[in-house]
């Protein structure tokens, strides 16, 4: 059997990933492949398990069962330095940006560079942080401010700069446009597309904002009650032929999706 060329191997492969909190099955056998350079967006309502899926991939939660392979290596069960080595190739933009309050903006951006041993030189780290800030459209004066002095949109930009500072192979975006006005949301979407393209990185995003999903996705997957019920090209999401997907993407109250998931939200805490 001849081995397949490397670029046909998925960058990220999930097989039968399951996660339960108490009696509630949050992820119920997720199978997913994300190819190198691809941007895949997982959509779904609140409590559908999107954040838990992301946390399992990032190693913040341990799945009860299943396999998560990143760059050909199994990552489920990795701890300590082995996990850090995997994470060194990943970037993450958190929903609320999750900037460190106690550090100025440039140190937030350079954090991964210094901690991940990409550089030990603070001057060099600062220089690279400034370049990343420029890349996301922030002026140099911002570098010495603390996160609480920034607007929500600026915090998202700094979060994006931090996520790309180490030039990761895979970038994850957790609800990147939540809480932003439509114009700022579009700016962030453009930045996400531009920066991931510039890095040549693979992107996995989770969102319930369809404008964002269609803008940044090559493929879209829909998560409903812990299962992926539809995966397809982004262009086809509005003609999927799946009643659940149709209801979600058109934002209709009537349809097969009830607000049952809202009554029993998925817990992502530990």
């Amino acid at each position: 059997m001849t081995p397949r060329p490397p670029d046909t191997e998925p960058k990220l492969r999930l097989r039968d990933v399951r996660k339960r909190f108490g009696a509630q099955m949050v992820l119920d056998g997720i199978d997913l492949d994300v190819m190198p350079g691809e941007s895949l967006v997982v959509i779904g309502g609140s409590g559908s398990g999107k954040s838990v899926l992301l946390k399992c991939i990032l190693g913040l939660l341990r799945p009860d069962a299943g396999s998560i392979v990143i760059d050909g290596a199994e990552t489920v069960g990795l701890d300590g330095r082995a996990r850090d080595r995997v994470n060194a190739h990943l970037g993450m933009l958190f929903q609320g940006a999750a900037l460190f309050d106690s550090l100025p903006v440039w140190q937030n951006v350079a954090f991964g560079l210094i901690q991940g041993r990409h550089t030990r030189n603070r001057a060099e780290a600062r220089e690279r942080a400034m370049a990343c800030l420029a890349q996301v459209g922030l002026r140099p004066e911002v570098a010495d401010l603390v996160p609480s002095e920034l607007s929500g949109g600026m915090q998202k930009r700094v979060g994006l700069a931090r996520a790309i500072a180490t030039r990761p192979d895979i970038v994850f975006f957790d609800e990147p446009t939540t809480g932003l006005d439509p114009i700022m949301a579009d700016v962030i979407n453009d930045l996400i597309v531009a920066t991931t393209k510039d890095l040549g990185a693979t992107a996995l995003s989770i969102t319930h904002d369809m404008a964002s999903a269609t803008k940044i996705a090559d493929r879209i997957a829909m998560l409903y009650r812990g299962r992926l019920i539809w995966v397809g090209p982004a262009k086809q999401v509005f003609e999927s032929g799946n009643a659940h997907v149709d209801q979600f993407v058109h934002g209709r109250a009537d349809g097969p999706i009830t607000d049952e998931t809202d009554k029993t939200p998925a817990r992502s805490g530990r």
Partner: peptide, 11 residues
Amino acid sequence: EQIDALSTLST
């Protein structure tokens, strides 16, 4: 989520 952010930044 700052503690989660630390973990994703290899810390």
